[in-house]
Design a protein around this nucleic acid. Structure first.
Lengths: 133, 133
DNA sequence: TTTCATGCAAAAGGTTTGCAACATA
DNA sequence: TATGTTGCAAACCTTTTGCATGAAA
């Protein structure tokens, strides 16, 4: 299937690249919709999948919805267990883990990703000031 | 909120413990429903969350639905990218990663989980015999 | 008896899809 | 001109929720 570089696809990629966080699909739809109110959700969701497929952006499956990241270099993520915000974590990729996992599971493992959980700076500050653990 | 150990809750826990894979919430509902056709989805989903909350079982968020695992000891998982099946991976937990992630992100990281991707034995065999990479 | 939990069905939240009209190559 | 893509709305799937009824403690 030969792909077409439509006006909409270009706009969606541009918008994702302009967003600094790790927006959910719907947040991207909202941002795109602000720039062109005739673009539908279907188009945005479809194109996000296409772009992720092509490697233009990275799909990040998180509880509460798929998120997308324009940084395609290998890196991990941390999610705030209080507010759900996501940030980047740059750590060296440990290839040997995949081999160890293959041995342990019997699957042919070719990759892994690590998801960290914790509190973002502002939630941490808030919890601390309220005295909760 | 004082919890009650209802007939339904006991049955649901029993069913999860009897399932060897990593069943999705709905698969568990189906299995429970086979034993008592009056139990509703709401009850099963509610109780799975309660049980996970209490630490009786472990909630595993995967694309395509939440899965549950009766093995509560720390371990990782591998998912087959072809058929979606999930298996256990027993690897030592690397505490130092959390510190490194804290440094990298600015979050206060307290845990992480690693998700492996690959092919399960039967999908691997199938792909190989068909000649695909 | 008190109040937490159930069963049912409806709602919610996120994503995908069918299809006729449209636009890109 | 051929066919991938859009826009719209409806369908889907998984999970949550409202509420009257039922059952643990």
């Amino acid at each position: 299937m030969q792909r077409r570089n439509t006006r909409q696809r270009k706009l969606i990629l541009e918008v994702v690249r302009s967003m600094n966080d790790h927006p959910t699909a719907d947040e991207i739809y909202l941002a795109v919709h602000e720039r062109d109110e005739h673009i539908g959700r279907g188009t945005v969701y479809r194109n996000l999948n296409v772009l992720a497929d092509e490697g233009e952006i990275v799909l990040l499956k998180t509880p509460g919805g798929n998120r997308f990241d324009w940084r395609t270099a290998e890196h991990s993520h941390v999610i705030c267990t209080a507010c759900g915000s996501v940030a980047d974590v740059f750590l060296p990729y440990n290839n040997s883990l995949d081999d160890a996992a293959s041995d342990s599971s019997g699957y042919v493992v070719d990759s892994h990703y690590t998801f960290f959980e914790g509190l973002c700076p502002s939630c941490h500050a808030r919890y601390n000031s309220k005295g909760a653990a």
